[in-house]
Design a binder for these strands. Structure first.
Lengths: 113, 113
DNA sequence: CCTTTATATTCCTGTCAAGGAATACACCCA
DNA sequence: TGGGTGTATTCCTTGACAGGAATATAAAGG
């Protein structure tokens, strides 16, 4: 599963919501539909994306499909974060100094139009 | 800065590459163009997205714009990750059991067509 | 078998983001 | 002030994705 697939899957707020929902417990599609307020087809499509990113697994229970979170891929994100975490842990002041020298501009100089 | 903006900014692989590049040191646009192999306009547009997500800052040096990483927003991701990290740290076996009960299906049952 | 229930898939449409080319803008220097 | 350099912006086209409606599929139960 490419990193891109993972990032793309989580880039969508509805999908993050679903993942967050499944954090509490596994859940059949119907409940996810109710919780997210999306249509059933749309929900199923999002779940498919999550499946393909390896973020969820399905168990079949009669006609129902119960989705459960698989947090393993998220470890990949964690690994990606590591170098940055090092930055903001190891001295926000060091970084701050670097940024102070560096920013004689406000955060975003683009004309807000 | 909404979480969506941040995720969207990082969802693009070129932008992640730029962020990773700026992890080593601040850098003017020209160098980023060379390193990423994108056109200069495209690069500028990506940098704008990163700016608007608060991930980079600009310092003006004569005609050059030197971009520097601001890892602060990434802390937001780290916070988002926390609950999941708890899952995979605190007993992959517990989770594993949950998934085993749960998965009598291969990872993704969708017809690979 | 036929119906009901639960979910997946297809079709269609509108929106949005990405990329290149051309152009505008800002700054330095002579 | 004019030219050169470095960067941003605009315009346009194209491709990807989201969402709804309708439909297909799968399983359970009578």
């Amino acid at each position: 599963m490419s990193a891109d697939t993972l990032w793309a899957a989580l880039a969508d707020p509805h999908r993050r919501a679903m993942v967050g929902l499944l954090l509490t417990r596994p859940m059949p599609v119907g409940e996810i539909v109710d919780a997210c307020g999306l249509s059933q087809p749309s929900t199923s499509k999002h779940l498919k994306v999550l499946r393909e990113a390896g973020l969820v697994r399905v168990r079949q229970d009669a006609q129902r499909r119960v989705y459960a979170l698989d947090p393993a891929p998220i470890a990949e994100l964690d690994a990606w974060l590591a170098p940055y975490r090092r930055l903001w842990n190891r001295g926000l002041d060091t970084l701050g100094r670097r940024l102070d020298e560096t920013a004689d501009d406000p955060r975003d100089p683009s004309p807000k139009d």
